[in-house]
Design a protein around this nucleic acid. Structure first.
Lengths: 133, 133
DNA sequence: GTAGCTGCAAACTCTTTGCAACTCT
DNA sequence: AGAGTTGCAAAGAGTTTGCAGCTAC
């Protein structure tokens, strides 16, 4: 039972075979898989799993803040385990997603919100670019 | 003929009644209307206009970079005339969209992309918050 | 035992598109 | 005149949901 499974069990989620599969796919993913990808990868391990379950589970995990849902400039969602906070740079030529962290940026966004009289609840920062040469 | 109409005509778009309506709605909007809103506002002026035309026109304007399409954390798009570059803070309680500019932020995002070996083509920065009191 | 979970298929929402008729230029 | 544009209705893509049966606890 990995940490993510433990967290799910702790909040009362029944640890069904399907959910274990989905959690396994998420924890071992090196990328930011779409629902479709999670489904396909899980299906390889047990082909009776359904898309509906994948959608329902990912939504549940998102609400529990155990995963992060991304909606890049695509018409579908991608997910990743909610681990260390970071942002993304999307390579427009290859579709690769590069993660980065930046302390200055974190401070700046807090400062901006504060100056506008707001308490920051959430944010979104994505860079889209192409390799410079 | 306003400036936006002129720009459209310049690139060869036929200035039909429907397009004039849409452009009028966009230039007079104080907010960031959804396709639905643009459609409704245009319909008030001439109720024969169709959704398909609104979608087609907004897509065209987006490709010409005459409007900016936003996809905030909602499941639909919002549009605004492509004017001065700025970012948005979305009030999670009221849905209000507050615009802001920040020079530091502009420099920072360029710097981050550069450090990662990328040329910045596009980006997205949105803050979501609630009024602090 | 039972509350919660699953697969299936149908429904939903937003958006796009094929087509025949129409309209700017 | 003719290329481009329109409204309509149907189709698409991604996602959600009602339901009857199943399963973890």
């Amino acid at each position: 039972m990995n940490l993510l499974e433990q967290k799910c069990a702790d909040v009362g989620m029944k640890m069904t075979e399907q959910r274990k599969l989905i959690l396994h796919v998420l924890t071992t993913a090196a990328d930011h898989p779409s629902v479709e990808s999670v489904y396909e990868r899980a299906k390889k391990l047990d082909d009776s799993i359904s898309m509906a379950t994948v959608y329902r589970t990912l939504n549940m995990l998102d609400e529990l803040n155990l995963v992060v849902r991304h909606e890049f400039k695509e018409n579908f969602s991608r997910y990743e385990v909610n681990d260390e906070h970071h942002h993304h740079l999307i390579d427009l030529e290859t579709g690769d997603v590069i993660e980065f962290q930046n302390r200055e940026l974190e401070l700046l966004k807090e400062k901006i919100a504060q100056e506008l009289g707001y308490e920051l609840v959430d944010h979104r920062l994505e860079l889209y670019g192409k390799k410079s040469r």
